[in-house]
């Protein structure tokens, strides 16, 4: 299970919506299973079908995590026209099996957000719990 503050959750979804119809992406900071901060990042592919997180955004997020005594615990990206489910591209390029992978889908009128763990090519959906308390 992954938990996320409602403000962080809304920031994540809004950052994806702002980039629509292009794929958006960002970095999840927190501790263990709790996201405490969302850092939207530039998709340097500038594409509606693929994304690459700006490496410099990863650098700054890592520094921020160290400063906050947190860690990068996952990443998110949007699927503009497909389901909130990891694509073969997502699975083949998983950078860290300990991270959470959050998908924001705009296939339907209401954004759909789902979280996954991906280990050795195996995709496991995990509940995403949005909390009402504010952390950022």
């Amino acid at each position: 299970m992954i938990t996320m503050d409602v403000v962080a959750y809304e920031k994540m979804v809004a950052s994806c919506l702002r980039k629509y119809p292009l794929e958006a992406c960002g970095i999840l900071l927190g501790t263990l299973h709790r996201v405490t901060r969302v850092e939207p990042a530039t998709n340097i592919e500038n594409s509606a079908r693929i994304y690459t997180i700006d490496p410099k955004a990863m650098l700054f997020a890592d520094r921020l995590a160290e400063e906050l005594k947190a860690e990068i615990i996952g990443v998110y990206h949007s699927h503009t026209h497909s389901e909130a489910f990891p694509s073969p591209t997502d699975v083949s390029q998983v950078p860290d099996p300990t991270w959470y992978y959050v998908l924001v889908s705009f296939k339907r009128a209401i954004p759909e957000v789902r979280a996954y763990e991906i280990v050795d090519g195996k995709i496991t959906e995990t509940p995403l719990v949005v909390e009402s308390s504010k952390s950022q």
Partner: peptide, 29 residues
């Protein structure tokens, strides 16, 4: 990014900070 410097031969000073980070990519394709 050391790829835009001298790659692995980039000189390092005693007070320098080195960050190793995963490249993150994917998409719906």
């Amino acid at each position: 990014d050391v790829r835009y410097l001298e790659k692995l031969e980039t000189k390092v000073g005693t007070d320098d900070r080195i960050s190793i980070l995963p490249a993150v990519a994917g998409g719906m394709e």
